[in-house]
Design a protein around this nucleic acid. Structure first.
Length: 599
DNA sequence: GTGAAGGGCCAC
DNA sequence: AAACGTGGCCCTTCAC
């Protein structure tokens, strides 16, 4: 394919180039950079293409210096010659088609100082289409091959983008990547429409800018507090490790003569063998919940559990997390994958800010810097509200509308007693049932976790579903339909395909549980994403910043004197997003301001 | 040495 | 024999 492109390297050329493109409804959009992280590298090229004409803008020509990435960013953001480019990029009227737009958007945001409006992300679109199934990869070259049947050469991708003079081959590569995007989008979008994924794709596309912002914002972590907590845990780990060594060595006769034979306390195999030696009746696994019942009778088991707790804390939540603090900002900029799970949930890594222990000792380390506040909001019982709404079960809905403690309200309904007569046991049963039902809980598992017999568990489950007949019906319908449809969908239309082995009962069972859970978990993700979009536009002109999300929770950092307004904005965004997807059940958002990420 | 797999455990 | 859903990280073990 022949490409017509133009290298832009002066103010007048940029003005003309942007003028040429500003009336196009859609533009292919790409950037070339010297690093993957905007805080660590330089933005070299911005490419825009209407599919026929491609503009390759060399930002080196607009920058006074390349001494540090931060300096380039300051320089470019202040450069008035780039105004036409910023206007074009920010305009929501011109769709920018990019592959993994979060990447390009972060660079533009940081180095040019503007938003990217009207994003269409072919990567997210491709992930939605494949819906968790198949081996298909989602790189741009893979999409070009799959949707256009052509080969895209990516060898220049990792070339030297800091070079004084870019080679003809580099510039042509850069141009091609942008030029091909409108064509890719057209083919991809045919599939999006055919699969009924337009609404969910819009949800995802609108969410890219908020997430790009969040990653650039980062979350402040108080290093000193973290180290203090780590020191405490390390001390406990050291003490329990030596105590555990001694207890385990007691089973070895010659230990006292030659010193204790050190065993690796982190090795299940070695620890397990040592425990057997001591006469501990070992369960099949050494998981905490299996060992817990033995802890009272065997002090060595109790010690092992104590050691495990400290070891987990110091390894997963130790020094390593401090290495993720970006020197340029002093904050943690984790990586959020927008479609982390086929259900639509986010996944987070480097580090995973979605698995920080709930204990205050850890959460208090994530705090607002001086003069700032954290606004912490989460959806109350969102998955159960979605289940109530989606199944339209009158009793389940009534339990929410009663405004009473939800698990007590359901216990009263299930066990046929007055709300004020619900015993702690009954409430606990109801709570486990309420949560379990979202995951497709079975009688065996319920019996095991509550300690009742399987027959009793079956009776209780029967009673539960008799109380909520429409919920029962919806769950059964999901189980039945997945066998023929081999897929499930959320309220936004997000789809998860399931390829199960029809001759394998456990494979069928897994698919059926998934078909019950996916629409619930996935609709919750839909709602969160919608809330982020609404929040983003309502805080755009303030100093409030999105800093973290955890499935049903949003954390915003704002100036202390903006606290009240920010609470209102976040509350409204979440409330509105919820009511767009859940119409028959009230949505409840718990929200408060704090100096630390704590309840 | 590197990488995959599996156990274990943190979050929702 | 039948394990309630979704992730990521750390560790050991084992294959290459």
């Amino acid at each position: 394919m022949e490409i017509f492109f133009q290298l832009v390297n002066d103010a007048e050329g940029l003005r003309k180039a942007c003028d040429d493109l500003k009336d196009a409804p859609m533009l292919g959009f790409d950037v070339e950079t010297t690093e993957l992280d905007p805080y660590r590298g330089y933005l070299r090229l911005v490419q825009l293409s209407d599919g026929r004409e491609t503009k390759v803008i060399d930002l080196k020509a607009f920058s006074n210096g390349w001494r540090t990435p931060a300096e380039q960013a300051r320089d470019l953001r202040a450069n008035a010659d780039l105004a036409p480019l910023r206007d074009l990029l920010a305009s929501p009227k011109v769709t920018k088609i990019a592959h993994n737009a979060k990447f390009d958007t972060k660079w533009v945001r940081h180095h040019l100082g503007c938003e990217v409006g009207g994003i269409y992300d072919t990567y997210l679109a491709s992930v939605l289409i494949s819906a968790g199934e198949g081996e298909r990869r989602h790189g741009l070259a893979d999409l070009v091959q799959f949707f256009l049947g052509r080969t895209l050469d990516k060898t220049e991708q990792v070339s030297d983008w800091a070079a004084a003079e870019l080679s003809a081959s580099q510039i042509e590569y850069a141009a091609k990547d942008a030029a091909i995007m409108p064509e890719v989008r057209a083919k991809v979008h045919e599939r999006i429409v055919a699969d009924g994924l337009e609404r969910v794709l819009q949800l995802e596309n609108e969410c890219v800018m908020p997430i790009a912002d969040m990653e650039l914002n980062g979350f402040y972590l108080d290093t000193e507090r973290w180290r203090e907590q780590l020191a405490k845990v390390t001390k406990i780990q050291d003490r329990t490790a030596s105590e555990l060594q001694n207890l385990l060595a007691a089973g070895v006769a010659q230990a006292s003569l030659f010193g204790a034979p050190q065993i690796n306390l982190d090795s299940q195999a070695q620890v397990s063998a040592a425990l057997v030696n001591l006469g501990v009746p070992m369960p099949e696994t050494t998981r905490a919940w299996e060992l817990q019942p033995l802890a009272e009778q065997y002090p060595v088991v109790a010690k092992l559990l104590e050691y495990r707790g400290a070891a987990k804390a110091s390894s997963s939540f130790g020094e390593n997390i401090l290495e993720f603090i970006e020197p340029a900002t002093g904050r943690i900029h984790a990586d959020f994958r927008q479609i982390g799970a086929p259900t639509g949930r986010f996944a987070c890594s480097k580090p995973n800010l979605q698995q920080i222990p709930h204990e205050e000792e850890y959460r208090r380390c994530f705090r607002a810097p001086d003069g700032r506040r954290l606004i912490i909001a989460d959806y109350s019982q969102i998955e159960l509200r979605i289940l109530a709404d989606i199944s339209q079960d009158a009793n389940f809905i009534a339990a929410f509308e009663s405004g009473q403690d939800f698990h007590s309200a359901t216990a009263a309904q299930v066990f046929g007693v007055k709300a004020e007569e619900v015993t702690p046991d009954q409430r606990s049963f109801a709570k486990r049932l309420n949560f379990g039902v979202v995951y497709g809980l079975g009688a065996s598992r319920f019996a095991m976790m509550t300690g009742i017999t399987k027959t009793e568990a079956e009776n209780t489950l029967r009673r539960y579903f008799a109380t909520y007949p429409k919920m029962d019906e919806w769950l059964r319908t999901q189980s039945k339909n997945v066998l023929t449809e081999r897929s499930a969908r959320t309220v936004s239309g997000r789809m998860a395909r399931m390829n199960f082995d029809a001759s394998d009962r456990s494979s069928i069972g897994a698919a059926q549980r998934y078909a019950k859970n996916m629409p619930i978990q996935g609709t919750s993700a839909d709602i969160l994403k919608r809330a982020l979009t609404l929040l983003h536009s309502s805080i755009r002109d303030t100093n409030a910043k999105l800093v973290n999300i955890v499935h049903d929770e949003i954390v915003v950092e704002c100036d202390a004197n903006e606290t009240e307004q920010t609470i209102e904005k976040l509350q409204n965004a979440m409330q509105k997003a919820g009511s767009e997807f859940v119409t028959r059940v009230p949505i409840k958002v718990d929200i408060h301001a704090a100096d630390e990420w704590t309840k």
